[in-house]
């Protein structure tokens, strides 16, 4: 699973702490999501996509090899 959270955050010139504060999670959570160590829950994925004004499909890329 790839995601564009880091790219989108940087595009908006936000720090991890700032994004974490907006979404009411810890900086570790944002870092873990960005590096792919942790897959967010559906509510958090939706909050992220709403914040970045994107769809979940645009923010998170499900790669083909993961289907099997």
């Amino acid at each position: 699973m790839r995601n564009f959270v880091r790219d989108e955050r940087k595009r908006r010139k936000l720090k991890q702490e700032e994004l974490a504060a907006i979404l009411k999670v810890s900086r570790q959570t944002i870092n873990a999501i960005e590096t792919g160590r942790y897959l967010p829950s559906l509510p958090l994925a939706l909050r992220l996509s709403m914040f970045f004004d994107m769809t979940v499909n645009e923010l998170f890329i499900f790669e083909k090899h993961e289907q099997s």
Partner: peptide, 9 residues
């Protein structure tokens, strides 16, 4: 101190 979903995980 900040109990979020990563901590729950």
């Amino acid at each position: 101190r900040l109990e979020d979903e990563l901590v729950s995980h």
